[in-house]
Design a protein around this nucleic acid. Structure first.
Lengths: 245, 245
DNA sequence: TTAATAAGCGTCATATTGACTATTATTTTC
DNA sequence: GAAAATAATAGTCAATATGACGCTTATTAA
């Protein structure tokens, strides 16, 4: 028996993936398609975030994790509930009205938006029944509902947090090079960073731990691998309130 | 005619006020009271945040502003939607069940939590029809529902933001002394700060503007007054992405 | 063997910080 | 009206961090 959904409350998930090939911060979107009656243009043909209604008896965090798992098969990713979108007319552009009519929903719906962080290669797109695809966060396709706004707010939050919290490591593999770390920062912040100063600054942090390993299978000089120690970070910053406005 | 409420969605407001007399960050709470049938102990006698259901046709931000205005008469304060509380059993302790029965609501309700920032003396408590009262954020009374958790999350968010954003000025009068600014930081962060280093650090910021005015009606050496220039701040930080983990 | 390339080390001037000492401008008290 | 008390404000000094660079080294491809 299907669990009962709460019709006016949903969760939408912005799935951010960092792609090390293209050094691009991407968002995972699914296709929304509705064929026209005759041989005309499709009525709806755009992309949306993955999301679904909350079930009775389920927490919002559980809804978000369930929705993520259904699309990607993944669990235990960094998850952040960052904002609620509840404007009365948030589902009111033309395509959305056609879509809503087709899907038989017409109530005002409030959506709790989450974002998740991972690397694009962690997701096997062929496994998904939806047509899911990665898009660079700065080259998004036409989006349904208010999902463009949701993505932009998620990105703004991620950008801000990445400047003062070690959230960026959620986008990196466990073992990474300083250059990869820098690439990720540059992609998120949209800036160029001097490589030598960046190295110095990061390598001197105690929570960036140098491993006894080097990159393999790389042409050019192979780089050392590092890891992020959450433990050391938390110990160091527990009692350390600094004003930095 | 009354607007229609959305029964399973509400907004709760954490109203933070800084009290310069006691140098304490306070929260404005309203009394929740339900008399017992006989001369017994009251059935419910604790405090809650102010909050109410969203109306159809109203944005969540509008709900929050409306609720704030009803309690305090105030408008245009700093407002932050910081988290949603939607656990299925969030209203399930004994007193809450009694209260819910008395008020005829029993549905799962999801609440969107906001916090507001102001100075305690801006609110005239005698004007309010509810029994509203300020409590220091670290000395809260017995609270109904999950409101203790909501306040703690709001405080954690405020604390974090105050370290890297100029949010603290929302708790201060337009014209303030450096000592008042320091007191506010110390109260929020719960730390002691060296007065001389703090002065130097803040006074050298271009967005802290020294006025041609001094405190009046004070014994001891009167201090200069300063103001915060949002304009200067925003211009300076628009293009200035710094990693500070 | 050499060229090419990215990794990684070093330098220098300037700015910021943390920990203190000292001075100044007020009001209250004697 | 002088002295004491108190808070505001200025200044010092060593250590550390930053921004803007130049240079060396390890590796693979040619």
């Amino acid at each position: 028996m299907q669990p009962q959904i709460i019709p006016n409350i949903s969760v939408d998930c912005v799935i951010f993936g960092f792609d090390f090939e293209t050094k691009s911060l991407n968002v995972l979107l699914i296709e929304r398609f509705l064929k026209a009656d005759e041989g005309n243009e499709p009525l709806v043909n755009d992309y949306v975030l993955t999301g679904y209604h909350t079930y009775e008896g389920e927490t919002l965090d559980e809804t978000a994790s369930r929705v993520l798992k259904e699309l990607t098969g993944l669990d235990n990713l960094y998850k952040k509930q960052f904002k609620v979108f509840g404007d009365p007319n948030r589902l009111m552009n033309d395509r959305d009205i056609i879509w809503a009519k087709n899907q038989n929903f017409n109530q005002r719906t409030i959506t709790i938006a989450y974002y998740f962080l991972l690397q694009t290669h962690e997701v096997n797109l062929r496994n998904t029944e939806h047509k899911a695809q990665w898009f660079p966060v700065d080259k998004l396709p036409a989006l349904g509902f208010d999902h463009k706004a949701i993505i932009n707010e998620a990105y703004a939050d991620l950008k801000e947090k990445s400047m003062y919290k070690p959230i960026i490591f959620e986008l990196l593999p466990d073992k990474f090079t300083i250059k990869e770390l820098q690439d990720t920062y540059e992609a998120i912040l949209g800036t160029e960073i001097d490589n030598r100063n960046f190295r110095r600054k990061l390598i001197t942090k105690k929570f960036i731990v140098k491993l006894d390993e080097k990159q393999v299978g790389i042409s050019k000089k192979p780089s050392h691998l590092f890891m992020f120690s959450k433990d050391i970070y938390q110990k160091a910053y527990k009692e350390n309130y600094l004003i930095n406005i």
